[in-house]
Amino acid sequence: MKKIARGLRYAFTVMNHPIRGFYDIRFEGQGNSVAATLCLVFLIAMFVVQKQYTGFIFNTNNIREFNVLQEICNVLVPVFLWCAANWCITVLMDGKGRFSDIYMATCYAVVPYAVATLLRVILSLFLTQQEQTFLGIVSGIGIAFTALLLFTGIMSIHQFTVSKTLFSVLLTVLGMAFILFLVLLFASMFDQMVVYISGIITEVRLRM
């Protein structure tokens, strides 16, 4: 329990001193994967809150189509794709980070975005349509902060140079697209296989 609490507090250390913070995750055994997962859960919760509690003026979601599972997928799928693709790429590029390091770094990096989302929701309750820009600024800062953290995170845990990090990020994005493609291909093949087998079964049953 104490360990988790320390892990959660570590999110703030990472935000304040990203380079040292991420370095310590990899080489000093700082951070905690349970706490990191909690950060991710926090982001999911903020996504849900955003859908449900954004002020009426800015909330254009149809409540009838709201789906928590989809919100969860919206967070989990990109995060795990990112981690998996990044791990695949950096292993080949002599990165020092292990999968758990990548995962933790990613999870800690999304915290600013989650906080910005929360701030955005609270602000949206008090702003009028003309002041919409402020909401954009808030989430813009959140995204920029998260992107920066993600970048330094990859750099620190793999001990890359800036240019190598940029290159690896590019490859990671390509890798994500590739994995997605494979998954879809697999799904459609599997679907065809199921249709084929069920077709055979129907055929056989009709002839028996």
Partner: peptide, 12 residues
């Protein structure tokens, strides 16, 4: 699990 998550919206 990731594959399943990816398939989730399609199922919906």
């Amino acid at each position: 699990a990731i594959a399943l998550c990816g398939a989730c919206p399609a199922v919906q």
